[in-house]
Amino acid sequence: MEGHSTCVLHSLHRLSTDIQRMERELKMTKDDTLVRIQLLEDKLGGIVEGAGSISSVLNPDQRVRHIFDQMATGLNNQVDTKTDILGAISNTLHRELKKVISAVEMQENQRTNMKEVDDSNAQKIYALEQTLRVTDAKIIEIEQKLMDNNPLLSYNGVLIWKFTDFLRKQQEAQQGGNVSHYSISFLTSQFGYKMCARLYPNGDGMGKGTHLSVYIALMKGEYDALQEWPFKQRVTFCLMNQERGAHVVDSFRPDPTNFSFRRPQSNMNIASGCPLFVRLDALFSPGNGLLKDDTIFLKIIVDSTDICDPSSPVDSTAAKA
């Protein structure tokens, strides 16, 4: 019986010791929890409003729950605030985007309208150019008919062209009027090549605005079938000095590959020659004798020494062959 009592006392002592140890551990855990809660409150003080004043009357579990409730409320408030700000920014951007889209659509409509106007103007310009070409062709045809009826027609490949009213014609060309003029037609012989000269008083091509340009243009003749093609005779232009001074002379030999010197298929081939014949400032220089009384004299010489004259006697041997 005594041994049993001793065992019971021993067990009670162990239990008391365990309880004391557990109490110490619980106290340590409680203190540690309180420290952790305090740290959490300190860290979250900027988010949780009024945590310090309320936490003093709450137990640890309530304090933790209260902290997290306050933290969730604070975060939700911050999220709501930022959401409102982002919503306002989004609305502003949306309004600005609508303005940009509207401006772009307006510019696109303006561009479309301008393109339609440009297309319409281009068609009108093209129609006017076609009308001018037809008119120019008719003028050339009339001029050539007048030339063909001219009693002064030359048959030796030499033409002296008296070109009057030079200043007026040069100013007219500067203003976009009649930029060129044709001479009367002339032939290398009675049955030879037919041609005329073309003069640009304000220049053409590389010489536009700076030089007097002169060209030769082959014309369709009655005896073209008897000529040698392409045309290859040397052509000389001579601007004659009216004061017995030095003439201005330039010449060229036709390029056989140039269609200007093939047999004419229409009334007249494209003219070709000397776009840089003489500088306008030299032409207008006082006392040089090239331009006098508003008149120039242009001499055109076609070398006909080696041209086979269809009117020459036929060789009897060739005839028998």
Rank of each mutant, 00 (worst) to 15 (best):
E243K: 14
T210P: 01
G205S: 06
T188H: 04
D165T: 08
E108P: 02
N267K: 01
T210N: 09
A103W: 12
S90D: 14
H181T: 07
E49N: 10
G50N: 03
T164M: 12
N202F: 15
L75R: 00
D315S: 12
D309Y: 06
A217E: 08
F252P: 00
L97M: 05
T210M: 11
L128K: 02
T6M: 03
T236I: 13
S53H: 01
H13M: 01
L128V: 15
L212M: 08
M219S: 14
H211R: 12
W229E: 03
V104D: 09
D32I: 05
N288I: 05
D136M: 06
L298K: 04
G45R: 11
S266F: 14
L75M: 12
K292P: 02
D69I: 12
R65N: 01
I296G: 00
K208H: 13
Q175F: 09
L26T: 10
K220C: 11
Y223T: 13
R95A: 11
T305F: 01
A282W: 04
N241Q: 14
L298Q: 09
S11N: 05
A137L: 08
T73A: 10
D165P: 10
G245R: 15
W161Y: 08
N76T: 11
K99E: 15
R168E: 13
K27T: 07
K169S: 07
F186C: 07
K320N: 03
Y193S: 03
I85V: 06
K232F: 07
V314Q: 15
R63D: 03
R63F: 06
D84N: 09
R253Y: 08
G207M: 11
I301V: 02
W229H: 09
I125V: 06
N258D: 15
T81Q: 06
R262F: 09
A271P: 10
H247F: 07
I37P: 02
A197C: 12
T6H: 00
A137C: 10
F186P: 14
I300N: 05
F237I: 04
